[in-house]
Simulated assay, not measured.
Amino acid sequence: MCSHTTKHRCIIQRSAVDISSLFWCLPVVSSVSTTGAGEPLDEQTAQEETEDKLKQCIDNLMDKSAKTRLAALESLRGAFSSRLLCDFLTERRLTISDCLERSLRKGGGEEQAAAATVCAQLCVQLGGGDESEEGFKILRPVLSAIVIDGCASVAARQSCASALGMCCYVSAAEDGEDLVKSMSHLESVFTTSYPNFEGTLPTPKAGTPGLHSAALHAWALLVTLCPASRLTVLLDIHLLKLQACLESSDVNYRIAVGETIALLVELGRDIDREFEDSDMLCECLKGLATDGNKHRAKNDRRKQRSIFREVLHYIETIGHWMRRRVYDAFKEVLESGVRHHLQFNPLLRDIFGLGPPLILDSSIKASKISRFEKHLFNSAAFKARTKLRNKVRDKRADVM
């Protein structure tokens, strides 16, 4: 069985084309597969075939050809997203971690970006136990180095920022030092978007708004793990400066900032019932929620108004924005496979307080799964924060 502890969150030589599409046609081991002659495969045989293909992909991570390595990473990305492979990966975690570290250190920008995504998926697959923490110890330094490297590919830095946030969230729950370091590296990225001493926002360079958004989202995810004493400091440092960034010229960064503000306000109220967001902030959010500026693209205005209406609603009604940030982080890493993991991955079910993994008949309709996903948002009891903070607040407070 997969090693999954409660202490965190109670958490070939084939052508490159063949490799890149390998896992989109892998047999699903929980259903009946067939051989090339149309004969049914039993579950064990299907599992063995899947594992053989996985082993070949892992071997290809060490290939001299960058094209082959990249194809292998993309195949692993699809496999890790669409099925649970904890037992298989636990036995090979160090080999995979070493291969991913090599791709991050020596690969080009595209390979680095793909490797970072697989890093995050690997941590989610391994769960919040010792195996995941072990892998994070290997990968955190190189992920952090790329995040803060101004000469690295923007796409690689962006992917590494997201991966650093997720890996730390899953794997470093009881290590305050790793949390502090990871948050500091992420802060060093998005704070370059803050206004200068004259109150003027810097002109963003090409690609940087996306990088800033990824770093900010990853940072916000880690903020949810901080003890109350640290949260108070973070609110004092960042809330007003983030408010100024609501005037950013990039719509997606404005949205990321607004979502982060909603999270910080919620956390502020959580640690201090008398915490109040400023009237100026609410007026600013209302302006963005009704923005009709003709200088902005119509689709940008529509997207912005939709998001900021929701942000404003959460702030005015004391909603649960943290629940959304955590869910969105996992959805970004797992993509369309997030529904599968919400059903069967013990880590995610534990984080969201959904009980033991579901055992569903393969004939269940997609609409049933959609209702399950909806249940995640509508659940009144979001247990992850309470569980986590009760267990680790004292340990973290000493470090932070």
Rank of each mutant, 00 (worst) to 15 (best):
residue 177 E to I: 10
residue 188 S to A: 13
residue 206 A to R: 13
residue 139 L to V: 10
residue 204 P to D: 04
residue 102 R to A: 11
residue 307 I to A: 14
residue 280 M to Q: 14
residue 321 W to F: 14
residue 73 L to H: 11
residue 129 G to H: 03
residue 87 D to G: 01
residue 230 R to N: 05
residue 216 L to E: 01
residue 378 N to Y: 09
residue 209 P to G: 06
residue 165 G to K: 10
residue 377 F to C: 01
residue 165 G to M: 11
residue 385 R to D: 04
residue 321 W to N: 06
residue 229 S to T: 15
residue 398 D to T: 11
residue 158 Q to Y: 00
residue 7 K to V: 13
residue 227 P to Y: 04
residue 249 S to N: 04
residue 128 G to K: 00
residue 51 E to R: 02
residue 146 I to L: 08
residue 123 C to T: 10
residue 265 V to E: 12
residue 318 I to R: 14
residue 81 S to L: 06
residue 355 G to F: 10
residue 102 R to V: 00
residue 155 A to T: 13
residue 34 T to Q: 09
residue 264 L to H: 10
residue 32 V to K: 09
residue 258 G to A: 08
residue 172 A to M: 09
residue 168 C to A: 14
residue 57 C to S: 14
residue 161 A to C: 10
residue 221 L to N: 04
residue 322 M to K: 12
residue 118 V to P: 01
residue 194 Y to C: 02
residue 399 V to Y: 06
residue 369 I to Q: 08
residue 144 S to K: 13
residue 107 G to W: 03
residue 346 P to M: 04
residue 150 G to I: 00
residue 304 Q to S: 07
residue 222 L to F: 06
residue 6 T to W: 02
residue 288 L to F: 08
residue 160 C to L: 09
residue 308 F to E: 08
residue 383 K to T: 15
residue 336 S to Y: 10
residue 300 D to V: 00
residue 94 L to T: 13
residue 102 R to T: 12
residue 74 E to R: 15
residue 206 A to P: 01
residue 100 L to K: 05
residue 371 R to Y: 11
residue 132 S to G: 13
residue 203 T to L: 12
residue 362 S to R: 11
residue 388 L to H: 15
residue 26 L to Q: 13
residue 264 L to G: 01
residue 368 K to N: 07
residue 189 V to A: 04
residue 319 G to H: 07
residue 329 A to C: 11
residue 79 A to C: 15
residue 68 T to M: 08
residue 182 S to C: 14
residue 132 S to L: 03
residue 89 L to M: 15
residue 202 P to C: 03
residue 118 V to D: 05
residue 146 I to H: 03
residue 91 E to L: 10
residue 240 L to S: 13
residue 46 A to E: 06
residue 214 A to M: 06
residue 19 I to D: 04
residue 39 E to P: 00
residue 15 S to E: 08
residue 287 G to D: 06
residue 21 S to D: 09
residue 57 C to D: 05
residue 113 A to P: 01
residue 135 G to P: 00
residue 76 L to Y: 12
residue 133 E to G: 12
residue 250 D to I: 05
residue 12 I to Q: 09
residue 72 A to Q: 05
residue 373 E to K: 14
residue 331 K to Q: 14
residue 70 L to S: 07
residue 39 E to Y: 02
residue 148 I to T: 15
residue 327 Y to N: 07
residue 392 V to C: 04
residue 385 R to E: 09
residue 171 S to I: 13
residue 273 R to K: 11
residue 326 V to Y: 07
residue 365 K to H: 11
residue 214 A to I: 10
residue 343 Q to C: 15
residue 12 I to M: 07
residue 361 D to I: 07
residue 79 A to Q: 15
residue 367 S to F: 01
residue 235 L to H: 12
residue 202 P to Q: 05
residue 127 G to Q: 08
residue 286 K to N: 13
residue 5 T to L: 08
residue 339 R to F: 02
residue 13 Q to K: 11
residue 107 G to E: 03
residue 62 M to A: 14
residue 66 A to C: 04
residue 269 R to W: 13
residue 284 C to G: 00
residue 179 L to V: 12
residue 55 K to P: 00
residue 341 H to D: 03
residue 210 G to Q: 12
residue 27 P to W: 11
